[in-house]
Design a binder for these strands. Structure first.
Lengths: 354, 354
DNA sequence: ATGAAAGCGCTAACAT
DNA sequence: ATGTTAGCGCTTTCAT
């Protein structure tokens, strides 16, 4: 509501209507623990209610040096992985009176730096990262500089994936996820297992290759270079990676993708090429996004509690803002969901067209 | 950076370092058009740069009564439809110095009302809606009350879909989308066309049924009640709607879903039931989300420029904030994308299992 | 238990 | 062209 002068109802209006000072009104309407007589409190509440007063969080933020705003950086909101994480953050944020500013970086370090700068200007209480983009030295330094500023302002930084020289605050074990996938595949008789890798500039990609290699070694298997297929991490990238899987004298009999997005793409690419899944080649995804249960065949994948991960990240932020100490990595459990995209390894060398 | 007293660098620090008053510093660092000598300007810029000064947008917002914050309300960020819209909004927002607060309502009117209230407290410059939830009279009134408050504060309201008693500011023609779908289907010989409806409490659902009915009438066809299949709008909802499509003596030979999410779900449900698409039944989606090209068979669908729609919404908000008048509905074009989920209508009555 | 007053960091009159 | 000053709406000492 506007009063005649064009201003919105403010605490002053509430105070006047209740016949108390702004200080008193503030004490009852803010989270203050300061004592106020029950009778007075009720009068203020009644006035606020009558006016449908909504405190100006901008003004409150200015004095309290706390905005109840958090920034969430994702590479692309349209990717279900990012969306689920963001949703989790948003959920926990809403429950605790925070609002979330979502920014997409498109995997571009410059956009990421700029986003953090804007968040800093906004004086967000925390910034939550999923994967960060691996950048050159100079960009890295500039990003770090921005991050130091948000920390200097008392802001919390939380990472949901490994970052350059910094471990995640809440995450999952990629290694364990791959272990589950590989164990399943090896049990099915697969020995030539390929890896669909995400974009080279995404932090996860390198970590993933390393983890996969170790897991395969645990089964006395190795990860041949030709079985590491680089992609840009998109559906299209997964799709166009299919031919590489099928070529050669001894092609892969199974592939594990670093994300469901990639897996869904490769499923389509494999179908394009006339290869049958899982008869000719088995496919395992990673994340278990909702769509994974709706592909044909249904995608066997490593379930990652993305939404919970997002919520956990927001909880860590709150903990940190409350003066809590960083507690190191908090891993949420992953599990394998077996659907129809995996089966026994083909006996002989399968021709891609059966 | 913190100075020894624990404060962040402020305009005062920049001014001091440049040897000018805060007013002058403000004039060069804000978007002010006020004249400042070139020499002075450079000094200020240099000082700001040396300090890596980032203006406190919270303070600026308090005095300017403009926060450069916009709220975006979606039902569920994880749904690709919502995500694409949000991404578009975010894109246009970033280009214009705005930041986006995303809030999911889960189709719950109470959450929606609460979200608007929080956005109002945040003093957002605009709130952008996708579909709103149809609520009972009381909830509707309360939502409207909150919205009036944001308007009273000079905030812009923009709708990307029809709302109760209010047309959208930027949208697409659902009717035209259905017309494209039906024309395609009729051309293929289909006469018994079903409609997969979204959740009853989503504004679109009713509009959609009406539009579909009119379109079918244009082809001298009618929309039998048994061919209007209500769902909750999710993948699972689409999946479980499949049996209803297959039952009866004269089952539908084609179905058009009100969203790709539903279409992808029904594709899976149809496969579960042993029906072959498009041989037994044709499926047409709506939206053309990225995943639509990756189903098996590829989904024929009505392409909706969701991201552009989101950007358009943000542009409208900016226009409105600049004092522009509401211009009425701005429809973006839709087009049919034919992939593999549609084909000629089966001649005789097809048994669901071939 | 309540009120008066200072001030968060900035912009916008209003001087000069 | 530059500086001084008065707030924006709120919280928080510091009185009382």
């Amino acid at each position: 509501m506007k009063d005649p002068s064009g201003r919105l109802t403010s605490l002053t209006d509430v105070a006047r209507r209740a016949g108390v000072s702004v200080a008193t009104a503030s004490r009852v309407l803010s989270a203050s623990t300061y004592p106020v007589a029950e009778k007075t409190r009720r009068r203020v509440l009644k006035a606020a209610d009558a006016l449908d007063f909504a405190p100006n969080l901008i003004a409150r933020g200015l004095v309290a040096q706390r905005t109840y705003l958090v920034g969430m950086l994702v590479s692309d909101l349209v990717d279900e992985h990012a969306a689920a994480l963001a949703r989790g953050v948003e959920e926990a944020a809403a429950e605790n009176g925070f609002a979330v500013l979502v920014m997409s970086t498109d995997g571009d370090p410059e956009k990421e730096i700029d986003a953090v700068r804007r968040l800093r200007s906004m004086r967000v209480d925390a910034v939550i990262f999923s994967y960060s983009t691996v950048a050159d030295r100079d960009q890295q330094d500039r990003l770090t500089a921005q991050l130091r500023h948000v920390e200097a302002a008392g802001g919390a930084l939380v990472r949901l994936a490994p970052h350059p020289r910094v471990g995640p605050d809440a995450s999952i074990s990629t290694r364990q996820g791959f272990a589950l996938a590989v164990e399943h595949l090896v049990g099915l008789g697969h020995r030539r297992i390929a890896l669909l890798q995400g974009p080279a500039n995404a932090g996860l990609s390198q970590v993933g290759v390393y983890a996969m290699r170790r897991v395969l070694e645990g089964h006395r298997l190795s990860l041949a270079d030709r079985f590491i297929i680089p992609t840009d991490g998109t559906l299209a990238g997964g799709r166009s990676a299919a031919p590489a899987l099928l070529k050669g004298r001894a092609p892969a009999t199974a592939v594990v993708a670093m994300s469901d997005t990639l897996a869904i793409g490769v499923l389509k690419g494999l179908a394009d090429a006339g290869a049958r899944v899982p008869r000719d080649i088995s496919v395992v995804g990673f994340d278990d996004v909702p769509a994974a249960a709706y592909t044909t065949p249904g995608l066997t994948t490593v379930h990652v509690p993305l939404r919970e991960l997002g919520s956990a990240g927001m909880q860590v932020a709150i903990w940190l803002l409350g003066g809590g100490a960083r507690r190191g990595r908090n891993n949420l459990p992953v599990e394998l969901v077996v659907r129809e995209s995996t089966d026994k390894a083909p006996k002989a060398r399968p021709g891609p067209r059966g």
